[in-house]
Amino acid sequence: MKTSHRLEQALTKLYVAFHNNQLHPECCKQCAVGNILDNTDSWKHLTDIHGSEVLNYVGMVNQKLGKTFNGYSPAELLKIESVFLKGCGYGGAINGRNAKPKNPTDKDVLFNGLSEVIKFLCEIDGVSNVMDYTKLFEFENDKPRFQSIIIQA
């Protein structure tokens, strides 16, 4: 499967952040978008509330000018962050009123959020979800349909 440069870069950055414990949903530099944008928080000026999908004036201007950040438009960045937060168990934008997970940095919580983000990133690039493992279990005539590495015990 051929993936775009922006998708490859985003997946790599998210993978590294997850395994280096540098992923935190409530930190604009360490959230999904913060990591995709090289641990910067400049993206937070595109909206008024962390986790909102609504572009503010600055966000709308950048969107209309066709500006991208590491290949993603302002609207895509806000959607990525929203998907991440919802996948982590947040009830919407981080505003003090919406539900949030008890331990936002729990590996299971972060994995769920990343799984949703990766699914979304693949969707917007028009590729199959790279986390979809169901093909490993497809078969034809009692044989695996696709070749894979089989680990012998």
Rank of each mutant, 00 (worst) to 15 (best):
108 D>C: 04
12 T>C: 15
104 P>Q: 01
80 I>A: 01
35 N>C: 15
61 V>M: 14
78 L>T: 02
74 P>D: 00
89 G>C: 04
129 N>T: 02
87 G>K: 00
46 L>A: 08
12 T>I: 08
66 G>S: 05
73 S>A: 03
144 P>W: 11
124 I>C: 05
92 G>C: 03
25 P>I: 05
145 R>M: 08
59 G>H: 08
84 F>M: 04
137 F>A: 07
48 D>N: 14
38 D>H: 12
138 E>K: 15
92 G>S: 01
28 C>K: 15
89 G>I: 02
51 G>P: 11
87 G>C: 00
37 L>T: 13
127 V>A: 05
57 Y>L: 11
63 Q>S: 02
18 F>D: 06
135 K>N: 06
35 N>H: 12
10 A>T: 09
145 R>N: 06
128 S>R: 12
40 T>D: 10
75 A>V: 02
42 S>R: 14
130 V>F: 10
92 G>Q: 03
48 D>H: 14
104 P>Y: 01
87 G>H: 01
108 D>P: 07
71 G>C: 07
114 L>T: 04
104 P>W: 01
67 K>C: 09
89 G>Q: 01
116 E>G: 04
147 Q>D: 14
105 T>V: 10
82 S>Y: 03
76 E>H: 05
26 E>A: 11
12 T>V: 12
153 A>V: 08
89 G>H: 02
87 G>I: 04
80 I>K: 00
111 F>A: 15
79 K>M: 02
86 K>A: 05
144 P>V: 01
56 N>P: 09
133 Y>W: 07
9 Q>R: 15
80 I>C: 00
19 H>I: 08
139 F>D: 05
35 N>E: 10
59 G>C: 08
55 L>K: 10
130 V>N: 03
129 N>I: 08
79 K>N: 00
150 I>Q: 14
115 S>L: 13
101 P>D: 00
11 L>K: 15
137 F>M: 12
49 I>H: 12
85 L>Q: 02
10 A>W: 11
59 G>F: 09
67 K>Q: 07
143 K>M: 02
145 R>A: 03
34 G>T: 09
73 S>G: 03
109 V>R: 01
56 N>Y: 12
52 S>P: 09
44 K>R: 13
64 K>V: 08
74 P>H: 03
119 K>R: 15
67 K>P: 06
96 G>I: 03
127 V>L: 07
54 V>M: 13
87 G>S: 03
150 I>S: 08
76 E>P: 03
108 D>N: 08
79 K>P: 02
77 L>D: 02
3 T>Y: 10
123 E>A: 15
111 F>H: 11
126 G>W: 10
58 V>L: 15
19 H>L: 11
127 V>Y: 07
69 F>Q: 05
70 N>R: 11
124 I>H: 03
78 L>S: 00
83 V>C: 00
1 M>C: 14
44 K>F: 13
